[in-house]
Design a binder for these strands. Structure first.
Lengths: 211, 211
DNA sequence: AGCTGTGAATGACTTCACAGCA
DNA sequence: TGCTGTGAAGTCATTCACAGCT
C-alpha cells in the first residue's frame, strides 16, 4: 500500500508531540484519507488497535516500521550531482525516515570532488565500489534523460534492485527490479489538467503523487 | 487521466525523431502501459486514429495539448529557494512541457537577491505582486514542513488554485483548490517496501508515482 | 459510549476480445 | 491484413454499515 508511508510520517509527528494514542478517524484526517481505509490498511498486517480507544502511537509506529522494512537504515546512492541530485543529497530529512545517502556520483569533472553535506561527489566509475561497500539496494537516477537508461543499467549491473527515477523517461529494466518515476513536469501537467476542468465547477481536488 | 502527460512526453520525442505515425502498441511500449489502455485513453477525447495505420504523431500531440490545457504556457511561482526550490527553478525542461517559472520567493535574507537561471529570488512579500502580474494559477511549495501550510495559505489567498507540494505535510486547503504531493522519502519507502516483499520472489515491479 | 475489525456493496480502473474500417 | 474503437468481463480499491470488544 502506498499510504503506509504517510501514516508513518504522521505518526512520527504524533509521537514527537507525545500523543499516546490515536483513533482511525484522527489518523485519517491527518493523512488526508478515509477512516475506514485507515482501519483496513492497518488490519492488513494484524490488528493492533484497541476498541473504544484507538491505536497506540508508539506500537503502531513499530509495526509500521517493520512492515515497511524500516527496521534499519537503507543505504542509497544518487547518480547525478546536478541541481536535483545535489538537492536530494543535501536533504537531511531522509535519515529519520529510514534512508541514508551513502554516495553521489557524476561524470562531470567540474562536479567530482565537490562536497555535498557530509559527502563528496565521486566519479561514476566508483559506483560499483560504493554499492558493494555499503550494500546499496536503492539507487536514485537524477541525470539528464539521455543518460538515464545508462545510469539504470549500471545500477542494475552492480546489483541495485530498486530505482527512483527523476529523469523524464521510461526506464527499461529486467524483471524483478523495481522502478518508481517522479517527473516534475508530469505533476504540473496533471494539476493543469484539473485546473482546466475546474473552470466553472468547484469540487474539492486533493490527491497525491502516490504520496 | 494521469497517463496523458506520459503520452505527451513520448510523443514529443517521436515528433523530434520525425516519426509521422505511431500505433497504440508502440505508444504503449514506450509509455510502459497496455495497448488497449492507450486506445481507451485516447478515445476519451474523440478518436483520432486511422485503422490499419495508427495515430498521426503531430495531430495527436495537438489534441493532447488541447486536452491537457497546454495550448499556452502556464506561469508558475516557486515558494522556497532552498536546494530543492533552486533545483526546480533552474530546471530548463519545463518550458517545452508547457510551464514557465515566473518567480521564486523566500524569506531568508541570504537567499533573496540570488540569481537562479534568468530569475532573481524575491522576498516572500512580493508573492502577491508576482502572482497578480503574471496571472499565476500554479504554485510550488518547496519550504520546510513547518512553513508549508503558511506558504499554501498565502498562495491560496492571492488566487492560486493548484499547488504542487514538496513538503512532507498534508496541506489543508479550501475546496476547489487542487493539491498534489511529492514526498521523496515516501517514494523511497514504497521502493523499500517492495524490496522487502521481493526477497525470494521475482515478479516485475514497474510503477509510477502517479506518473 | 466509543471505536475497531470486516463482510458486503459499490465504484473505478484494466484487460480481453472482437467487430469494423482502411 | 493491420490496427482502431468499444462493449463486456474481470480485477482491484474504496466506501458503507454494522457487529462486537473494552
Amino acid at each position: 500500500m502506498a499510504r503506509l508511508p504517510i501514516y508513518h510520517r504522521v505518526l512520527l509527528e504524533l509521537e514527537a508531540e507525545g500523543r499516546p494514542t490515536v483513533s482511525s478517524e484522527q489518523l485519517a484526517e491527518l493523512a488526508g484519507v478515509n477512516a475506514a481505509m485507515v482501519r483496513k490498511d492497518l488490519s492488513l498486517f494484524g490488528s493492533y488497535g484497541t476498541r473504544g480507544v484507538g491505536y497506540g502511537v508508539t506500537q503502531l509506529l513499530v509495526d509500521l516500521r517493520r512492515e515497511l522494512g524500516l527496521t534499519s537504515s537503507w543505504p542509497c546512492v544518487i547518480v547525478g550531482a546536478g541541481n536535483l541530485g545535489s538537492a536530494l543529497a543535501a536533504f537531511g530529512g531522509f535519515r529519520e525516515r529510514g534512508f541514508e545517502v551513502v554516495g553521489v556520483v557524476d561524470v562531470d569533472p567540474d562536479r567530482i570532488g565537490r562536497p555535498i553535506a557530509s559527502l563528496t561527489v565521486a566519479h561514476q566509475n566508483e559506483l560499483e565500489r560504493i554499492v558493494a561497500d555499503h550494500g546499496v539496494l536503492i539507487g536514485v537516477v537524477a541525470v539528464p534523460p539521455a543518460a538515464a537508461q545508462d545510469a539504470a543499467n549500471r545500477l542494475v549491473a552492480c546489483g541495485v534492485r530498486s530505482i527512483l527515477n527523476f529523469a523524464p523517461t521510461v526506464l527499461d529494466v529486467p524483471d524483478g527490479v523495481g522502478v518508481r518515476n517522479v517527473d516534475l513536469a508530469v505533476e504540473l501537467q496533471i494539476l493543469a489538467f484539473h485546473e482546466g476542468r475546474r473552470s466553472g465547477t468547484d469540487e474539492p481536488v486533493e490527491e497525491s503523487a502516490s504520496a
